[in-house]
Nucleic acid binder design. Structure first.
Lengths: 260, 260
DNA sequence: GCTCGTGCGG
DNA sequence: CCGCACGAGC
């Protein structure tokens, strides 16, 4: 079974590439981020035609997540319902989180980018990550130890996850506060599935469109799949497929695949 | 020898289709309208690479004409220089007219659309056509009887040039004043090259992008090639190639070709 | 660079 | 419906 995560940077624009990739890679479940489309406008027919059920939680222009799955899934959307209160419903104004319940709980996240260190958006990112931690704590209590969290975290956990980590201490996606917020999530009891199989650097999932980032391999590993130890035992492999980043009109992100 | 006219609706967007078509059709001279590009930004290298000299007269976003020619040409741009005064230099603010001098004078025009009957733009269209008439009168006096005028006239000369002429009396591109302004130009001594070979209706050069105009064949014949009688004698054929209207990302216009 | 929305022009 | 410009977000 193959579960994947991919920030597609507009599901409408990337529709042909995503369809092609799903078929070639024989993916069972794909968690998508940055769909940039309202639920009314989600191009579900295209994916249903190739055998995928579509679950989506989107908005106009920005953010938006979706899960495309060969099997039917029971999905829930946003923080609300799991963690409640004014703050979580405020957080749900941006559509960045959904989950599916099957044998395993699968959480699909699009963590805020944060713009630049200490900006208003940076503080929102930290708050959002704190909410995610609360959310995952409840999920663990509620549904037990079979959890996968995947998505675009907009954080490179370690220096080896950046093409050139020098001078990135104060860079968005690498700053200590972000890394710590992510660590506090991981410390709830998750394992970086990719790092279970590959310990070395030079593996990236995102390259800036600008300044030929991909051609120069100026990449960052910011898309992750985190799993509970019980799930970790079942994983056969976890890897990045950079081929979709090479095609015409690519997303700036490459998908990450987990086989189990 | 093949001379053609084609409103490409952005030379940058249509570059691949135009290059492909020039080669397949073995065109010697192509008059282009609606290039929508400044002279600095005209993609001349692409056409030079396939053996065409580029002569262009454009502006940002709107209008713009060009001549692509296998042989070198001597070109002149706008009304000014042929007809002078405040009005013609005012008219030249919109880049809609250029000409080439060889054995034959070739005039390339993009007549204003006119928006709707009696609008401000409609009156501008009529004025522009009056200026064109003055311009052509001078050209005839100056250079004699070897003249070809081609381009997007935004006028269907007769009812048979419209898919459904009923109720189009007050429609832009069919109203009596426009048709009369065109007739006054033709009456300077020009022949509709297309009509020399095809007398019947159901021949169109433009189909609205909206409401699936092409699929429903809701077309208009508004792109024309007019020639002096001396030239008319040398023409072997004149026809519309609708194939470029069938491809992916087509212009809303099809090219018209004249063989001589 | 490459998305998107908005607004204009056709 | 499909071009363009512009501004925003990443």
């Amino acid at each position: 079974m193959k579960i994947a995560t991919w920030n597609v940077n507009s599901i409408r624009t990337r529709k042909p590439q995503v369809k092609e990739w799903l078929m070639v890679q024989d993916i069972d479940i794909l968690c998508v981020q940055e769909t940039k489309v309202t639920d009314e406008e989600f191009p579900k027919d295209d994916f249903e035609q190739i055998g995928y059920n579509c679950y989506f939680y989107g908005q106009k222009s920005y953010n938006g997540v979706a899960i495309l799955s060969r099997n039917n899934l029971e999905c829930f959307y946003g923080f609300s319902g799991i963690i409640n209160g004014e703050k979580s419903s405020k957080m749900d104004e941006q559509k960045r989180l959904m989950a599916a319940r099957g044998d395993i709980i699968l959480v699909n996240v699009y963590v805020p980018n944060g713009n630049s260190v200490d900006s208003e958006k940076y503080h929102y990112k930290l708050e959002w990550l704190a909410s995610l931690r609360e959310y995952l704590k409840v999920l663990k209590e509620k549904y037990g130890e079979n959890i996968i969290i995947c998505g675009d975290f907009n954080i490179a956990p370690e220096d080896i996850d950046i093409y050139n980590p020098q001078g990135k201490e104060n860079h968005i996606m690498a700053s200590p506060k972000e890394r710590n917020a992510l660590k506090e999530i991981v410390d709830l009891g998750f394992i970086d599935a990719f790092r279970k199989f590959r310990k070395e650097g030079n593996y990236f999932t995102w390259w800036d469109y600008r300044q030929n980032g991909f051609a120069r391999n100026r990449g960052w590993r910011i898309d992750h799949i985190y799993v509970t130890p019980v799930v970790a035992e079942k994983i056969l492999d976890c890897y990045i497929d950079i081929n979709p980043r090479k095609v015409e009109r690519p997303s700036d992100h490459a998908p990450v695949i987990c086989e189990l």
